[in-house]
Amino acid sequence: MRLAAELVDLVKDYDLGTFVVHALRGVTLRFPAGDYVAIMGTSGSGKSTLLNLLGALDRPSGGTYVLGGEDVSTLDDDELSRIRNQMIGFVFQSYNLIAQYTVLENIEVPLLYRPGHPPITSADRERCAEVARRVGLGERLDHRPFQLSGGQQQRVAIARALVNDPEILLADEPTGNLDSATEQEILALFDELNGEGRTIVMVTHEPEVARRAKRQIYMRDGVVAGEGVFPG
């Protein structure tokens, strides 16, 4: 089975001057393509650090991280930007849409930063509209974020994460700000996307949400403490 991402003995230390925080102490994980993983753990367990490394927002202090066949653990800042642009789709708890842009423009943002900066063509626009329809936003492309409900905003964020057809979808507490009905809608969308073959890694502290994933990984003190189907 093809691996979407592989972490081998990943270490991350933060040097705070007076002492060193060992945020990750050797994490080894494999995410086959089409996987749907929930990462759980208390705060300080290292799950945020792990998510930052998976999202190529940061570089590990040791170990290797291979994403889509490419070792990204030693790339420079510009290369990491390219990786984030091409291989990773982010979905945040607080949606993180750009307020002055319309729905369509928000979905287009990753296209602005494609390698070589090709101009945005009408085909690109069509693709954005198609992705928006895919996540259930067909009618609202010219709305601004503040005109949308939380669930709709999160759908925009998901569409934006999908527009560059990433290797993995990283979701950080994607339903943390939503009521339970909307939460179910978004989780259903994730199920669908996973059903289409998307690899999803989701950080959450809610067992109810984590149970929707195929696998659950528990983090504690910077290492993987357990793995399995909740409450396994």
Binding site: D78, S81, R82, Q86
Partner: peptide, 16 residues
């Protein structure tokens, strides 16, 4: 700052 963070997460380089 937040907007800058978003753009960076979506692939904007420092030069962008």
């Amino acid at each position: 700052t937040r907007e800058i963070g978003i753009r960076r997460a979506l692939g904007a380089k420092q030069s962008d």
